[in-house]
Amino acid sequence: MFFLEFCHWLAKSHIGVIMRDSTWGFAIVEIGHLLALAIFGGAVLLVDLRFLGLGFRTQSKSQVARELLPLTVGGVILMFVSGFLLMANGPIRYYYNPAFRLKMCLFFLALCFHFILQTRVARQTLKGEDNSRWLKAGAIVSLVLWFSIGLAGRAIGYV
């Protein structure tokens, strides 16, 4: 119920009113959401592909995880902020949208799962690097989760 109250508050707030009433506000923020997706998605993809041994093999897993951390973290912040503004367009409508609910659950899962995985590998040294099957399984789970979030996100507009 707390979330529904929050949605009511957001709908009446300044941001909510601007996002609902401006002609191009939604379109501009949505394009920003897509631009952030290109950077964020690309970085996540390359990190997970490296964990799977399918790319960037000239660098160690920990190096790739460490060096792409600014992109994945920065990207997810941009995605979240722009996504929040998009939601402000009609918070109560989104609250009752099943695809939106699914997306938020998956997003919370993926956020915890992926970043625990990436920061854990980023902290490893070259010698103590995790080469187990668990890391590969983790990378697959991360990819599947992010991909489902994309699907659910696109479905919001259709259900």
Partner: peptide, 10 residues
Amino acid sequence: ITVLVGTIAI
């Protein structure tokens, strides 16, 4: 977009 533009952006 992530596969094409994301990798180019890197």
